[in-house]
Amino acid sequence: MEQHDVIHQYLKQLERYLARLDKTEAQEVLKEIESHIFDALEQQQHSGQVVDAKAILQGFGEPRQLALAYVAHITNGAPLPAGFKAIQKVKQGVTATLYYAMAAFGFSIAFALFFTAGAKVIMPDSVGTWSAGDGYSLAVGFFAAPYPADQELLGVWFIPIATFSALLVITLTRKVLRVLKDNM
């Protein structure tokens, strides 16, 4: 069982690093390597050797290195002139920053919405949505000195609406992150 865990963990990591390949291509690579590993394990068993998955995996090298060899034709389809490497690095850096900034932005908004929904349950009078300035401005939030209660717009509806909005923001953020990751 332990041997199988080691193998599955290796294949899982490899799958992650193969994300740049087409899904079908990546599955094909994984299928072949998996087939090899289990074949080699069986051969060890038949020849009465110690069954050692780690020794077999060692021949494949680190999952990241192995995946790099498979995606090399995508990352360097045409060799870049000297000096261009630095530019590529900067570009990659920007994408990574953008990725994490997007994650922080989206998830913090979702967290704030969840938090206000929770706060509404505990302190219904201090949390809510108010209209001020004859409908020209809208205030959503958590106030120490609340607006007059009769102007609060949503009442208990605030809770499902804020929760739903939070879930929507999470879904959208994840979608955007997936697109960013594919282009990283």
């Binding site: 690579v29 072949e32 390597i33 090899h36 077999i56 021949g59 494949f60 090298g61 290195q65 192995l66 060899a69 498979y70 090399a72």
Partner: peptide, 8 residues
Amino acid sequence: ITEGTLYP
């Protein structure tokens, strides 16, 4: 050679 060289 090793597996890691052959398959790629």
